[in-house]
Lab assay of single mutants.
Amino acid sequence: MAAAAAAGAGPEMVRGQVFDVGPRYTNLSYIGEGAYGMVCSAYDNVNKVRVAIKKISPFEHQTYCQRTLREIKILLRFRHENIIGINDIIRAPTIEQMKDVYIVQDLMETDLYKLLKTQHLSNDHICYFLYQILRGLKYIHSANVLHRDLKPSNLLLNTTCDLKICDFGLARVADPDHDHTGFLTEYVATRWYRAPEIMLNSKGYTKSIDIWSVGCILAEMLSNRPIFPGKHYLDQLNHILGILGSPSQEDLNCIINLKARNYLLSLPHKNKVPWNRLFPNADSKALDLLDKMLTFNPHKRIEVEQALAHPYLEQYYDPSDEPIAEAPFKFDMELDDLPKEKLKELIFEETARFQPGYRS
């Protein structure tokens, strides 16, 4: 834990890192770190609560700039109880001085990944967590956004079992017609939660990839272990087919990539493993919904509104309290091709509203 900075004593240090967030945020305490930044909790002297502050230093890398800009653009436009918001952003007053960006968010005690390492969940908890994931996802999908990296560590939890989806750095506007060349190379989302079509096709992607990830998360809540822990690309596919069985001819016809289709045709026939054999203690309604989410063919996979209306979630289902976005989200430009200098300018502009004396 960093010592509390005395008023006016300059930035606090946390594990050798400068955290320049005073005077409003003090009493910093280390939480963890990701690929390009550290997260601390801090005391907000204005709202009198502890908050989470993520320090991001992305400006050396085009990919990190892209992810940072995506996350900020999306989260500043989203407003939903099951999606983490941005409360404040701290950065230098000029673009030349801006080396880091500090993002202030609600402090959540833990995440689903940490929880599943230590606790076996009751059916009631599984049901409530799944409902909140789908409630947040309904809003995301209504904005025409794909999260693309749903996994237990991106689901934040607090002691009252509130759940918030975080990390929109890989999110995209849904565009089933656009052929994202190089899709697989830039697709760094965790393999275990990846839909089979991501490994088999490169053309376009749809909201059904997020539903697949939610199915993987439900299976993990039922058993405290990942359902498809593939060691590499082909191993991942083999794990999936080992449980779902061989795809039907109709399902194979959806695979545009001939090499991928021929690979699947070359494999020995596998039978589907019954879900109640894998999860003998699970609620039968939970397994019915799991089956509809972990469907090989993305066109037959359940959609988020149908999933919310499934009998497993009937005690929570309330369409009048499951809000959607006001308007579909649009990125003005494809960020993939922009140089990091341009992305830095866009991050600077996007964060201006939090600067003292800002006038829109």
Rank of each mutant, 00 (worst) to 15 (best):
A2C: 06
A3Y: 07
A4V: 13
A5I: 04
A5T: 13
G8P: 08
A9C: 00
E12P: 00
M13F: 04
R15F: 08
G16T: 01
F19T: 06
D20N: 13
D20F: 12
G22Q: 08
P23H: 14
R24E: 08
Y25Q: 01
Y25W: 00
N27V: 01
S29T: 05
Y30V: 05
Y30I: 02
Y30A: 00
I31R: 15
I31C: 15
E33Q: 10
S41H: 07
A42Q: 11
Y43E: 10
N45S: 13
V46L: 12
N47L: 14
V49W: 11
K54D: 02
E60L: 14
H61D: 06
C65T: 10
R67I: 15
R67E: 11
T68S: 15
T68I: 15
R70V: 02
I72G: 01
K73G: 08
I74W: 03
R77V: 01
R77I: 04
F78N: 11
E81I: 03
I83Y: 00
D88C: 01
R91P: 08
P93M: 03
T94Y: 06
I95N: 15
M98A: 11
D100P: 13
D100M: 15
V101T: 08
Q105P: 00
D106V: 13
D106G: 00
L107K: 01
L112Q: 14
Y113W: 02
Y113P: 03
Y113K: 10
K117D: 07
Q119C: 04
Q119Y: 07
H120G: 07
S122M: 05
N123V: 02
D124E: 14
C127Q: 02
Y128T: 06
Y128L: 06
F129E: 01
R135S: 13
H141V: 11
S142I: 05
N144G: 05
L146R: 10
H147S: 09
L150V: 04
L150K: 05
L156K: 03
L156V: 04
N158M: 10
N158P: 01
C161V: 00
D162E: 15
D167I: 02
F168M: 11
G169W: 01
R172C: 02
V173G: 11
A174I: 01
A174D: 04
P176M: 05
P176V: 13
D177F: 07
D177I: 07
H178G: 07
G182K: 06
G182D: 00
F183G: 06
F183L: 14
T185Q: 07
V188E: 05
A189W: 03
A189D: 07
T190I: 08
P196E: 06
I198G: 04
I198A: 01
L200K: 08
N201V: 10
K203I: 14
Y205D: 12
Y205K: 07
T206S: 15
K207H: 08
D210N: 12
V214S: 07
C216T: 05
L218G: 10
L218T: 11
L222Y: 12
L222R: 10
N224I: 15
P226I: 04
I227R: 03
F228I: 15
P229C: 06
L234D: 09
D235V: 14
L244E: 03
G245P: 01
S246F: 09
P247L: 09
P247Q: 13
Q249A: 11
E250Y: 07
N253Q: 07
I255Q: 10
I255S: 10
A260H: 01
Y263A: 03
L264C: 04
P268K: 05
P268E: 08
K272V: 08
W275P: 02
D283S: 04
S284K: 04
S284A: 09
A286K: 03
D288E: 15
D288A: 10
L289A: 06
L289Y: 06
K292Q: 08
P298D: 03
H299L: 15
Q306A: 04
L308C: 06
H310L: 14
P311I: 09
E314N: 02
Q315I: 06
Q315G: 04
P319Y: 10
P319L: 09
D321S: 00
A325G: 12
E326Q: 12
E326K: 13
F329K: 09
K330H: 00
F331N: 12
F331K: 01
E334C: 04
L335H: 13
L335P: 01
D337L: 10
L338A: 07
P339I: 08
I347D: 05
P356W: 01
P356N: 00
P356V: 00
R359Y: 08
S360C: 10
